[in-house]
Amino acid sequence: MQFSKEEVRKVAKLANLDLTEAEVERMAHDMGEVLTHMEQLSSLDTSAVEPMTQVLFAAPATASLREDAVREKTLLGTEDALRNSALSGAGHFKVPRVIER
């Protein structure tokens, strides 16, 4: 399977991923090779097979549900939540301007 540089750029845009020209070239080659291997799956008849959407859960389906109440243990305060942010201020994450006035 051929994977073109144009297709690479399209997928990279979907993935919000900047690639250099050299990376686009490398990616076109690598993705072509890997996807060619993956295409072998089409030779297998799976018309009567259910997809595996849950790995393993040997308990009633609702067993992991809980009361909709605050769980103190996983409560992250503003300070902790913002500690790893690239840029913050006034108790918020700061990002580049989104709307032009």
Binding site: N16, L17, S85, A86, L87, V95, P96
Partner: peptide, 22 residues
């Protein structure tokens, strides 16, 4: 580029996402 420390500077939000990841 928002919550996890590393960010590449860019004028717009989408550009910042893509540049950071790239």
């Amino acid at each position: 580029g928002v919550r996890y420390t590393a960010r590449a500077e860019a004028a717009g939000l989408n550009e910042m996402y893509s540049r950071t990841r790239g």
